[in-house]
Design a protein around this nucleic acid. Structure first.
Lengths: 223, 223
DNA sequence: CCCCCCTACATTGCACACAATTCGAGGCCG
DNA sequence: CGGCCTCGAATTGTGTGCAATGTAGGGGGG
């Protein structure tokens, strides 16, 4: 049986990323422990690590809450991704071997298949594929500090779910970008890949900031 | 009494940053617990958080070790700082008010006082001042994602101690940079500050990479 | 003689029990 | 009737014991 703290970490992270628990909500230690069938100890460790990742915030003696993001902070995340991910992508492209290219190609192709509008479109299936694609690029860049910086900043929450926020046009752009990055990698052209990734992040930024603003307006109007 | 886990965190972090424990060395839970007068529980939490910061590495069932850095990884850290800190500095400069300027000025001035060659030079006193200076700039930038990225990547270990690695010339350059950044801030000129910070990081990079290479050569020769 | 396995020890991982702190509710006083 | 205080329940922080895992040393087999 795999480590209980690992399972707890994955389970809670998945809960947050899938949106099962809303931002700002309390995460009680006993509740999580019972739900996962472990004691509070591994749950506490998982929460500590998630706090370091930025997915939750812990106040002393007051427990853990899912992190919530202002629009300004969300824009900051994309600023940072725009600064770092193209750099990582360029490095990754110049280091990828045939097996890496095949794996990236498979991911991009599958994302196009399940993400294209029409019957069979499954926006939720895109989430893990997208994570895998970007994760592989970062790993391929072989730059631990950069990987740590991205991990420390992206905080995937709103960012990595919510493909539902994309309209058809921007979603297709996004999926095409992945394929184009693979093409650039095959061509061994880091600058091409860098440019596409830059566009990719800016496209995502436009979608996400718009979605966040809409959500906020809706909430203010509703109340 | 302040939280035991906080004390443990600070104590262990300080131990590592001050170089009291060499990189690669094991950090036994019981040993630390006895040394700090607490039980293993807060020590474990401290180690978990330090692992998230990157100061230690934890292998399952095999304990925690102080992270050690290859020269390539060290260069990666400075690449990242060169990409992010100038950006943060520019933002900070355009947001600083009179009180911030005074505080930065005081820090820069004091660093010049205690760091200048001659009697009274105290390289170790520079360490906390330097941390404070850079930390204030990052805070002033008011950009949580960027702050998280830097925190996640810098991992201060070798970087933040070791002012001893600087020669007189590069040390004076470094101290002057701080003062010049304050001047740029007073002038309300973000681009000026950005440029100086860029130079500042590159200067530090040259010193640190050189020092790391020397240390490695020395070790290889000696063995 | 070298390699593999097997046993004993040390250390970490987890669960549980207790102490300390926080937040809310009810009552008391002004 | 409103505000403050006190008491209580719930939750987090810490200590300790036990089980599981990794490691080192010695003995047996090839």
């Amino acid at each position: 049986m795999t480590r209980a703290s690992e399972r707890a970490l994955e389970a809670v992270r998945e809960m947050i990323l899938r949106g099962d628990v809303a931002p700002g909500l309390r995460l009680g230690e006993v509740e999580l422990a019972e739900r996962l069938g472990v004691s509070r100890t591994p749950v506490r460790e998982a929460l500590t690590r998630l706090a370091a990742e930025g997915l939750v915030e812990i106040s002393p003696n007051r427990g853990a809450r899912v992190t919530s993001w202002s629009i300004a902070e969300l824009e900051g995340v994309f600023d940072l991704r725009a600064a770092l991910e193209p750099r990582a992508t360029a490095r990754a492209v110049s280091r990828a071997d045939a097996a890496d290219l095949a794996a990236l190609d498979a991911l991009a192709t599958e994302m196009l298949a399940v993400g294209s509008p029409g019957p069979g479109q499954d926006l939720d299936a895109l989430v893990p594929l997208n994570r895998e694609f970007h994760g592989r690029l970062v790993t391929l860049a072989d730059h631990p500090a950069l990987a740590a910086a991205l991990a420390g900043a992206i905080h995937a929450p709103i960012v990595l779910r919510n493909f539902h926020a994309y309209g058809d046009a921007s979603l297709l752009r996004s999926l095409s970008h992945h394929a184009e990055i693979v093409a650039a990698a095959r061509a061994g052209d880091p600058e091409w890949a860098r440019a596409v990734m830059t566009a990719h992040i800016h496209n995502a930024r436009a979608v996400m900031v718009r979605a966040a603003a809409d959500a906020q307006n809706e909430k203010e109007t509703g109340s």
